[in-house]
Design a protein around this nucleic acid. Structure first.
Lengths: 170, 170
DNA sequence: AAATATAGTTGTTGTTACCAACTATATGGA
DNA sequence: TCCATATAGTTGGTAACAACAACTATATTT
């Protein structure tokens, strides 16, 4: 359906069409995944943001709060409270920074590590189910590309402190 | 549903690996897009959810509140308040349902339509910029995949009105 | 040593989202 | 017909998330 036709057409037309498809699909996907995350996580009494924070702490080693807030694109005050929740649940521990008395270093606890692994396992199963519909070669290319897309999208985001514009509520 | 042994999977290891990549990329993508949406929309003093609701009303014609909440996977009370915001801003109008005195029909106003088109245009530009980095054939495959993924993910979500903790799909 | 900058915390507000309780209309059965 | 039950939306209450602002405590620079 897309193969020969798309190539003979002007690149612009297919880009337009694909852009629309992508936009709509991404909109829907984000919405669905938000929902799925809520659904999957609330069982375990952890929120999506807390889960992201836990993952970030695990993946990127000991982190300061500032680094975490940058990684999640959220304000440091939000990060502070999210982390407070994780600490209360025993998934994350704070230690003081060896070289900076103001700063805090966040570590995942062993419980936190196991807990996160469980969740990751579930999400992995979900992703594998999704992927298993596709041919192996295509699958590999596509995952690589989505990954690249995520990075590209991330790169374009202005992470300057999660600053928004005027939040003038109507 | 097809049981695992009914299908011969030649590349289980690669599926594992790709599943992980996909999971991580999706996590990041969702986060980035949430942020982008916030950032892009707050300019215009509309929230992501309100925007989704407006889109849904536009795309699916006159909708009842129940239908809207199903489309967005949110509780009807949430939908009610989100719509209240849109009505206050003049983007959506309520009319009474011709055949059901309890129900309400939601229409987008002309202002709402134009407003949504603007936003969609911006997001489209964004998606096109993203896509333009890739080769046309790959691009097409990628959009198709994301589109399909969104549908697949949506299909697996329990849309029974935003109910939480109904994880049967693991 | 004083001024300035930075890391986190806390106060406050607004949105989103849930569940529960409620009102008003519809529908089905006795 | 009339009452019971179901359904469509709204409102109350609560909690999480996320923003900005103001604050404390430590670092750094002048």
């Amino acid at each position: 359906m897309v193969s020969a036709d798309a190539i003979t057409r002007p690149a612009d037309a297919s880009l337009d069409r694909e852009g629309e498809t992508l936009r709509d699909a991404l909109t829907e996907l984000v919405r669905v995944l938000q929902f799925r995350n809520r659904d999957c996580l609330c069982d375990r009494e952890i929120s999506a943001t807390q889960c992201h924070a836990l993952e970030a702490v695990l993946e990127r080693g000991p982190l300061t709060l500032n680094a975490l807030s940058a990684a999640l694109y959220i304000e440091k005050s939000t990060a502070s409270r999210v982390v407070a929740g994780l600490v209360k649940k025993g998934y994350v521990a704070k230690t003081s920074h060896p070289r900076d008395g103001r700063a805090v270093l966040l570590h995942a606890t062993e419980t936190g590590r196991r807990f996160c692994a469980e969740i990751q396992q579930d999400l992995l199963a979900d992703c594998k189910r999704l992927l298993s519909d596709f041919d192996p070669e295509i699958r590999a290319a596509m995952t690589a590309l989505i990954s690249r897309m995520a990075r590209a999208a991330a790169a374009r985001v202005d992470t300057s402190g999660g600053a928004c514009c005027t939040v003038d509520s109507v």
